[in-house]
């Protein structure tokens, strides 16, 4: 069964999920490499949690307009808006406190607001929020061809953008002052990187859910970093690790009943990191 899934022989839907998860893993791995090099790993956590109120609000807005509340592009737009607001809030608060604290505060309060809105939806009885709550932990079971295409093309677009911007992104991460002197605007580069990470978070909501997407961004990246001495090498390897974990994880979850896709992918990536630590970790640490 597992071999069938790995060879894309386990049915149309399973194949779709495997390919989608692989592309998502690749995009997340590549974006995560730059994110961790810029030391913003936890920023993605805040961003992912801050999508929840947007999803709820978009659902309410679409229902109020007489549409289908679960229309995916609409939900993603809402998610993007509040995630961007959350990012802005982190940056604003970070002027007055350590970035860590700003990140945690925004994460918790945006997520809390999201939960309030979910209970509001539930109370209004306009829809089964159970359908919405899959964004917490993802759900690949009902993945449609259209969803897989969104993930695939979104992932490819992110990878292409990262590839073409790899030099300025690396310069800003390594030495932002020098980058600025060389005519690279660090703030604009950071904003671009955050937009790309946001894109990964949005397409990842369907697969891993918003709590675990941060693992897909960070874990392959920190493993890759221990094997490569260049930025491009780190990002490429990280993308490969992400893709492999996504693919195998989706295949395993398709062939074992009750095994959720997102957590399996995360555990595979963690296994890869564990191996990396054993082989490449500092002995004296």
């Amino acid at each position: 069964m597992i071999w069938q899934a790995l060879l894309l022989q386990a049915g149309y839907n399973a194949a779709l999920v495997s390919l989608g998860a692989a592309l998502l893993g690749a995009a997340a791995g590549a974006a995560g490499a730059f994110l961790t090099l810029r030391r913003r790993a936890l920023m993605s956590d805040a961003m992912a949690h801050a999508t929840l109120p947007g999803i709820g609000l978009a659902f309410l807005a679409m229902v109020a307009l007489g549409g289908d509340g679960r229309f995916l592009p609409g939900l993603m737009l809402g998610a993007a808006l509040t995630a961007a607001a959350g990012l802005w809030a982190v940056q604003r608060l970070a002027r007055q406190m350590h970035e860590d604290a700003a990140t945690g505060a925004v994460l918790a309060s945006f997520y809390g607001a999201g939960i309030v809105i979910l209970t509001l939806i539930q109370g209004l009885g306009t829809g089964r929020p159970a359908g919405l709550e899959t964004v917490l932990l993802g759900s690949t079971a009902g993945m449609l061809r259209a969803d897989a295409l969104v993930i695939g093309f979104g992932g490819l677009a992110v990878i292409c953008a990262l590839w073409s911007l790899r030099r300025p992104l690396a310069m800003v991460a390594f030495d932002p002052l020098h980058a600025r002197m060389m005519g690279v605007n660090p703030r604009r580069m950071d904003a671009t990187l955050m937009a790309l990470v946001l894109a990964v978070v949005l397409v990842g909501l369907n697969v891993t859910g918003l709590i675990l997407i941060v693992a897909l961004l960070v874990t392959p990246a920190v493993s890759a970093r221990m094997w490569s001495t260049t930025v491009t090498g780190t990002a490429t390897l990280s993308a490969v690790i992400g893709a492999v974990c996504g693919y195998i994880g989706a295949a395993i979850s398709a062939s074992v009943p009750d095994l959720p896709t997102g957590p399996v992918i995360v555990l595979l990536a963690a296994g890869g990191f564990g191996l990396t630590l054993l082989i490449r970790g500092r002995r004296d640490g």
Binding site: L37, T229, V231
Partner: peptide, 15 residues
């Protein structure tokens, strides 16, 4: 940071 010596110097050629 994962950069090699030559990569750092190449950052100076960015313009």
């Amino acid at each position: 940071f994962p950069v090699r010596v030559i990569d750092v110097v190449l950052m100076g050629c960015y313009r």
